[in-house]
Design a protein around this nucleic acid. Sequence first.
DNA 1: GATATTCTCAATCTATAGATTTAGTACATG
DNA 2: CATGTACTAAATCTATAGATTGAGAATATC
Lengths: 232, 232
Amino acid sequence: MREFKRKTRVLLVDDNNDHVKGIKELILLETGYDVIGSASSANSAVNFVKKYNPDLVVMDINLPEKDGLQAIQEINRLGLETKFLVLSGYDDPDLIYRAMKVGAKGYILKTMSSAQLVHGMEEVLNGKVYLPAVLTSKFFDYFQQSFREESAANDEENLLSYLTSREEEVLGLLTKGNNYKGIANQLFISETTVKTHVNNIFQKLQVNDRTQAVLYALNNGFGKKIKAKMSA
Amino acid sequence: MREFKRKTRVLLVDDNNDHVKGIKELILLETGYDVIGSASSANSAVNFVKKYNPDLVVMDINLPEKDGLQAIQEINRLGLETKFLVLSGYDDPDLIYRAMKVGAKGYILKTMSSAQLVHGMEEVLNGKVYLPAVLTSKFFDYFQQSFREESAANDEENLLSYLTSREEEVLGLLTKGNNYKGIANQLFISETTVKTHVNNIFQKLQVNDRTQAVLYALNNGFGKKIKAKMSA
DNA sequence: GATATTCTCAATCTATAGATTTAGTACATG
DNA sequence: CATGTACTAAATCTATAGATTGAGAATATC
């Protein structure tokens, strides 16, 4: 049986033409890869993928106008098998987190070696996630921090705990976008009573209007429950 | 200056006594480690940490009654510097995800080599996250899946995309709880102009008031966009 | 150079939100 | 049974939100 492997079709996305050239040359040194195009904006990247369905997109995420993460998200919604390897100049935990969140399969820095880039491409194409150890640590710093803050916010002094059950009920309807009349109808009480409750809620949450009350509620775990699962 | 490095104090948590013995012997083969105790339940692990404040906890998460993840969470709330390396028999993406979520710094399988265990311990103690490539992939499978489901619901036609950049700016301030006056002051425009923008926002988002607009924004990914940074 | 969009603002009007005071009922607790 | 709290409600008032119309300036598009 003859060895006949279709070349991997790659799209490069970067708004800097020199970068595109450099990376392209680098990739073409490897057998098995074809750079079938390049794009310098998120929109053109999306259009290119729609037309030519590359196997892999190597992309910078710092693009003019719309950023690369949005492009990844849009393309992923198309339901294709496109893999994304982010090639970024930044190692912010926040950026890494958001890239992985929207569905990137790998993230490497422009300062990393070309061997690492090629290795990352291979891993990603094999269905794995490629995130160098340094970046993995940064990702988890951010990931775990977000949960620490969440549980810290729930602790401390949560003003929501001072609400009576009726007030909680009213606040719940506020967070659904109801006005006084809507709440009154749903709770079978008068509009003035609702106003009284809402005013008391404002006092307790130390806010001035319903929008702030709703924001306080959402930011402080109102309505959130811990889903406890049994472990194996 | 004399080389004098304090030994790393390790707590082992596993409900199987044979496992504890085996791991303990393994660790003690390494210089620099002291196994200062072992626990066979989540509660006794928590109590042990409170009393003896180990540097590292190597733990199985499959424990009777309360599971190891809860123990990690409880201990992390104490505000100590305790590092956790999960040593599990299972490689479920869900388990890995939850372990990392509650603050584990590493996760390795019992089937992995002792060299890998020791390496993981070192990495974790150095403040890094240790997650073997196979498990990293599993973690991200789960992680990304959870967002795919979320964005599938939010997607379809996102009305936020019809907003002009100025309207986005105004909506951003609305989601901070500002009233007309506050927005006008911050954008250096008149209050009536703000009202015009807000009205246009309502039209485009098909809502009736600011609370609904804010809720729509928050539920449809507003603000989850990249804060554009200058590229190198 | 005509057209469309965006951003700006005023003026005016109505509707709703929010503040405040007072008060009746119910219920629990000491 | 006196006291405190939660829930209900009315009345009244002010402040803010929101709808609508019209219009000038800037910029981009064709």
